[in-house]
Write a protein that binds this DNA or RNA. Structure first.
Lengths: 192, 192, 192, 192
DNA sequence: CATGAATGAGGGTTCATTCAT
DNA sequence: GATGAATGAACCCTCATTCAT
């Protein structure tokens, strides 16, 4: 307390120690230690008080949502690229699902809160998820039209399947092949 | 109250406060409140001290493994029944996977420790899982021989897929259809 | 959004975001949620930063004092009315104490800081309280002169008694009669 | 952590560091710093972990109730003594109220939780309070019979009045006479 | 072999107040 | 003058696990 107090407060108000700094630190820590890293720990690591962290992100989901937002642009760009470049609707869906799988594997433990969010709807993550379900549905519709996907398959199911595979993947340290294998099964499962 | 009570209790519960009694209570509690129910709570509910609980089951996974052991007989019986009664190897595999799905949904939150166990190997759950992977492989081999299953699919992958679907299912309160949909996809994914 | 919003807000709220606006909001909030409502919350509700709030009112007591100031006019008017209209000094004192009780019940949790202020003297509330003690003393003196009040009773004691009854009242949700009962006791206690 | 760990655990399991030790420490601390001393602080001062404190007393009210229990015996003894020795029912009631006032002034800040408990009923303090209200009613009944107390006065009101006076008293550091003055008023208020 | 008190790190969260901008 | 981000101590409480009895 003494040390902290005597240090110039000005130094701490530094611009780098703001939202984006916290995000950066959180990104790094979630990447390394998974999303269940304690909020206090993140605050400490970011060099801010817990209050500051909570000011920016009122709960873990909000922080997570912000973190994923950054990747959202990437993912949206990927969607656009697929739309532009991949004219086979079946291949397009496959590529989109792959991109989605990538996204859901960003941090260890990410699939869990996503799954929860999808059901509760009250989380800031819910919106994000819903958006991706919708996009999945769009790709899927095209595939349905072209006869490339089994008609009973729904976008939400594919999204959940991707989530589930990511969930398997994250812990399957001992066997890196399992993730791919499940993707193959899923692929064969929805394709005609 | 203390003395009299203790003595009486000691005499009365001589037998009941043993392994199987704890198991019964834990079964009930895990069923109702999920596997993350506090160990202390289970001990208290079982009328034993935490020490006694830990004497019998050195950690949560051990308790879980013991609990699943009880269902193991059931599952093994199911396997035998399938072997006896279902002569189409593809249908047999399908029914086995269904039984497995049932097993993995016994308690809320069960898929998580199972997934972890599968990778670490050190957990008492690992053995249990390994056993089921093996059985799955047996059914799968038959299906492979008969051309009913895609040759690249492995037993471990199917086991993980079942686990993953159970994981999705347990939280998908809002949409009970998702579990079934994922099962369909998986089925179409491994079948030829 | 940030820039445009800020400028617009700055222009629009030039006047509203001043002392009296804050007071209005605080009044509403203290009335609804009691005096321990967080300072930050009030600031936010008033649409100002906490800094602004603190500029006007260096602490909660100062805010409270300002709030009570507004009611002070009311109370002073009541005093004047009693002086004018009630010629029996005993009845006058009784009516004044009733008015005082009303005042002390303005916000939930008000009696506490008032009691504290009365002892510390350093609080802005202290002055307010002292003023009312003085007025009480005036009414009491008249009653003493006319033999309507026991001579040993002091104004400060009556003020504290009123405060104490208000304190009882605010939590006595289960029994609305207690407040009145205590008032009766007090009345019988000071009257001859 | 290192230090604490290396210290023999045996030393900490010492008999003095049990319930009564905690009570002793709490008693001292509540006496010196009032009842709002943080639970963690008390635990630390008692040389136990917060968990130990919470094991014995699940919340602050429980701790308070236990602390008051010790004084309860004293108070009950006082009641018996009054019954035996004071044959004038009015004087008996007066003395009982005085004893009650003493009890309610045991710790700084005690009246507040007592008042709350009286309304909510769910607190362990509620029972204690109810008991004293009942005793007050007994003394009051006798006084009513003998015409020494105004018939409209109820035991609960007197209890609350005593509480309120204790509340006034605890902060009236600047003026020790206020408490006594309020007692006089109350006395004159209920007596005929 | 059973007991259950003790441990104590750790978790999430709040809020009065300051101060650089 | 106004702003509002930052501060960080404090609070309450939980729980897996140990170990003296």
């Amino acid at each position: 307390m003494t040390e902290a107090n005597t240090r110039q407060r000005a130094a701490r108000t530094d611009k780098r120690r703001n939202r984006s700094h916290i995000l950066g630190v959180a990104e790094r820590y979630f990447t390394e230690h998974g999303v269940s890293e304690s909020m206090n720990a993140i605050a400490k690591l970011a060099g801010v008080g817990p209050g500051t962290l909570y000011r920016h992100f009122p709960n873990r989901d909000a922080l997570l949502a912000a973190l994923l937002q950054a990747r959202s642009d990437e993912l949206k760009a990927r969607r656009d690229a697929i739309r532009r470049e991949v004219h086979d609707s079946t291949a397009a869906l496959a590529q989109w699902l792959e991109a989605l799988g990538h996204w859901a594997t960003a941090f260890d433990g990410l699939p869990e809160p996503l799954r929860l969010a999808l059901n509760e709807g009250s989380s800031p993550l819910a919106l994000t998820c819903q958006g991706y379900v919708t996009i999945t549905d769009e790709f899927l519709s095209a595939a349905h039209r072209d006869g490339g996907a089994r008609p009973t398959v729904r976008g939400k199911d594919l999204f959940l399947n991707v989530l589930a595979i990511s969930w398997v993947r994250e812990a399957a340290l001992a066997d890196e092949t399992s993730g791919g294998a499940l993707e193959d099964i899923m692929r064969a499962g929805w394709a005609t």
